[in-house]
Amino acid sequence: MIFLQLFWTYIKIGLFGFGGGYAMLSLIQDEVVDKHGWISLQEFTDVVAISQMTPGPIGVNSATYIGYTAVHNAGYAAGLSICGSCIATFAVCLPSFILVLVISYYFNRFKQNRYVEAAFTGLRPASVGLIAAAALLLMNRGNFIDYKSFLIFGAAFILTWKFKLHPVLIIFLAGIGGLILYW
């Protein structure tokens, strides 16, 4: 049952995930935290942090991690949990596969399609909203436990925004910051 749910959920994420990895976050969060309760919001934040440090797209990372954890938390053995991982990762890529193969066929017509262009006049601003929602949803008491959290947030923001530090470096520094501040 959980395998079917995972499959269907990640098909949806693959099919409606417009606007890149960050815009996808609120969609993933809505499905796996709010709707199914497979992981907590803190755990979800941790997955995003881990994704920033490891190679690969966030969509794949989250599918692999949550596919494993959801099945594991439902009380199954490691072998079946790995199956969950495979199913979620396969499902999130499946819509892409079908769409790309169809579009490759009609590529030149799709390239300057006025319907696609028109739809994007609405989708582009909406995906800015989706990214903002992902950030707002994670600004909760679980992730911001005291004033030190706000210090780390401020420092990370300035270092990324003004000094263009690489996300991997930010995560690394924030980890050290956490160790020192919460010693």
């Binding site: 992730n143 911001f144 990324t160 924030a174």
Partner: peptide, 12 residues
Amino acid sequence: FRGLRPAVVALI
């Protein structure tokens, strides 16, 4: 991870 979580929000 207490340090990482607020930083992740900044990264979004």
